[in-house]
Design a protein around this nucleic acid. Structure first.
Length: 483
RNA sequence: GGCCCCAUCGUCUAGCCUGGUCCAGGACGCCAGGUUCUCAUCCUGGAAACCGGGGUUCGAAUCCCCGUGGGGUCACCA
């Protein structure tokens, strides 16, 4: 794709492939060599590795020993001309290097700490360090914001910039983000969770076809093994667990809103200015971030990714947004991640159900889960025995009696609208003295097999009267069997 | 191990630069009540922290030093 030039000033943006920029790099490398700020080196990887090992064994820090400089310069040039394999190293001056970081302040490394690192590999390609410095300069990069894990590279880059006569951009090293356990967030976490669940379930062979038996055994016995993403997801579903999200894609699939993810991550290591009441501002729109973001307000300490707080942010965003917006967002999400909901429900049904479920869902995935009852067939309902006992059988079948009476009245009830159904339920509860709870809970068990569902009116409405009666009938039949 | 970075409630943080207004504020979580047709919300209240030790100062969470702890990084990878 073509880069868009932002900011001011004419700049050279692109090409973007290192292979297409090789001429740019080589021109500068040649210049450094001529100025004796860089030199050819012929050490083999084996030789270097041996020296490295020796340094470790002697508990010393390994630094390149400039062995190549023992060879006279003319000889080196001849060897290169003859086509000998070689790399190019930067001749790092024996002086301390200070990086003025916008977040961390001045960071100084003593003279001699940075060794003569390689700037061009033997295959002729630049190393990351050179490409980075050259591209930033050529493309007019003014600010470099990156993770603190790169802090140690920065003195090298500054040394290179000096050698090349380039300016130094503003550096800002951001705090790192870890998971709850204090470790780096990595895909292995997902394997770990699935492995634990599989072991807990006592699985000795794969419950999923896509994973062969030998592969499964290998994976379950070796913490370092990782399954393919789709295998892992299939396995998680078979085991009935949710995998921990580690990538942005995982969070999206799990029903987190992009703007919430952004908001939350922005808050890790950064805090906006206070509001007029003097309280911390935590939940904000992207345009607020764009205006209020400042390097000065980035902290120095690493942060842990708190899933519960993210969930709270997501819940608040969902429950407080406009109903129309929520419906739209849900449908966009569902058509990608929960197509069954889109296929199984009509537009009007989705609208009513989303209206009922918006206020009680923490994620889009949860909103979809809450619709599951409407997608299944009467005969596939599985009854939660605890719920059946509590709401139908207990008290000499009080619930069953209520349900049977409700069935009779519902059969003759024709104002089939959510609010009307709800009012009917309330009136019935009042009239019979069982209250709304006594009406709603037995009906929930009949409709879903569980004591949980969206509001009663919406729940019955979305199923339609005929289906409601069918579900009551089957439920009553089940109850008479158990008694 | 060398080098570099960091250190406030369980977690994210405000405060630190420009010492006193901080017996340290907010948010998530947690605990206890309350509201609610279920779940989830929602409301009210509560417990909860300046890593340790030395300085400097009338006074230190705030400045300095040491210790301890945590993290990062040590490639012909990016």
């Amino acid at each position: 794709w073509e880069g868009e030039v932002i900011g001011s000033g004419a700049r050279d943006v692109g090409p973007y492939r290192q292979s297409e920029r090789i001429g740019v790099y080589n021109e500068l490398i040649e210049r450094l060599i001529e100025e004796e700020k860089a030199y050819y080196a012929f050490d083999t990887p084996e030789e270097l590795d041996a020296k490295r090992q020796a340094a470790i064994a002697a508990k010393q820090t390994y630094k390149y020993d400039r062995a190549a400089l023992e060879i006279p310069a003319e000889q080196r040039a001849v060897r290169v001309a003859n086509g000998d394999e070689h790399v190019v190293r930067l001749m790092v001056p024996a002086e301390s290097i200070t990086v003025d970081d916008a977040v961390l302040g001045e960071v100084t490394v003593a003279a001699g700490e940075v060794d003569d690192f390689i700037i061009r590999k033997k295959d002729g390609m630049p190393t990351y360090h050179l490409a980075c410095v050259v591209d930033d300069e050529r493309m007019g990069v003014t600010h470099v914001l990156r993770g603190q894990e790169h802090l140690n590279n920065t003195p090298r880059h500054v040394a290179l910039q000096k050698a090349l006569g380039f300016g130094t951009p503003v550096y800002a090293h951001m705090p790192l983000i870890f998971n709850e356990a204090g470790a780096k967030m990595s895909k292995r976490e997902r394997d770990g969770a699935a492995r634990k669940a599989a072991k807990d379930a006592g699985a000795t062979s794969s419950p999923v076809e896509s994973i062969t038996h030998p592969r499964f055994s290998e994976w379950i016995g070796d913490k370092k093994q990782q399954l393919e993403p789709d295998q892992l997801e299939a396995l998680a579903e078979a085991l009935g667990i949710d995998l921990p999200e580690v990538s942005v894609g995982d969070f999206r699939a799990a029903g987190y809103l992009p703007e919430v993810i952004c908001n939350f991550i922005a808050l890790l290591g950064f805090s906006p200015s206070k509001d007029d009441a003097g309280n911390d501002r935590e939940k904000f729109e992207m345009d607020f971030l764009a205006n209020d973001f400042a390097l000065e307000r980035i902290g120095k300490t690493n942060a842990r990714f708190d899933r519960k707080k993210l969930l709270n942010f997501n819940m608040e965003a969902i429950t407080t947004m406009d109903a129309g917006v929520f419906l739209k967002k849900f449908e966009d999400w569902a058509s990608h991640y929960a197509p069954r909901v889109m296929d199984g429900l009509g537009a009007e049904q989705r609208e009513v159900l989303m209206g009922a479920v918006q206020g009680q869902s923490k994620t889009l995935a949860e909103a979809a889960d809450r619709c599951a009852f409407a997608l299944m067939d009467v005969d596939s309902i599985e009854y939660d025995q605890k719920a059946v006992k509590k709401w139908l059988l207990k008290g000499e079948g009080k619930g069953v009696t209520t349900l049977a009476a409700l069935r009779d009245e519902l059969a003759g009830f024709d104002d089939w609208q959510p609010e009307a159904i709800h009012s009917f339920g309330e009136a019935f509860g009042e009239r019979t003295g069982v209250g709304m709870g006594g009406v709603a809970q037995p009906l929930r068990v009949a409709m879903t097999g569980t004591a949980v569902s969206p509001g009663l009116g919406e729940t019955l409405w979305v199923l339609g009267k005929d289906e409601v009666l069918r579900r009551i009938d089957r439920c009553l039949a089940e109850c008479s069997q158990t008694t």
